[in-house]
Amino acid sequence: MLIRAAVALLAGLLFGAGLALSGMINPAKVLGFLDIAGHWDPSLAGVMAAAIPVTALLYRLAGKRGSAVAGGPLPGPAKGIVDFRLVGGAAVFGLGWGLAGLCPGPAIADMVLDPRVMIFVVAMAVGMVVAKRLSGSGV
């Protein structure tokens, strides 16, 4: 139990440090990455380029063990198919991301840097609750 709590806190610390170090916390930087038709700043591609192989390596290590270090099963591959809900949801998310330069992680992290971002975070919570209600599930 303690190890689970410690790793959750550590993962948060690493994630926050990673967002801050990479520049993901800065909406202007993110909008620059998305601005391929203008003054494109491709540097943030480095975030995915580094994060994916590191994650994949540790996932593979976990897969070889067959269970989580703290006990319990590992989540299986994502269930479900490519459907309208997935593509439509991703498109709506992309629209909001492009409008503000904020996705959920950086938006929450930015609360310690600029209280104005609370407007976005509260609105995001409303959007999540609406989506949950519409889907009628506890997702």
Partner: peptide, 17 residues
């Protein structure tokens, strides 16, 4: 920064599942 994010995601899966 991406490396740190990957470490976070990987550890959360490896240890906490």
């Amino acid at each position: 920064g991406g490396g740190l994010i990957g470490l976070a995601a990987g550890l959360f899966f490896l240890v906490n599942g």
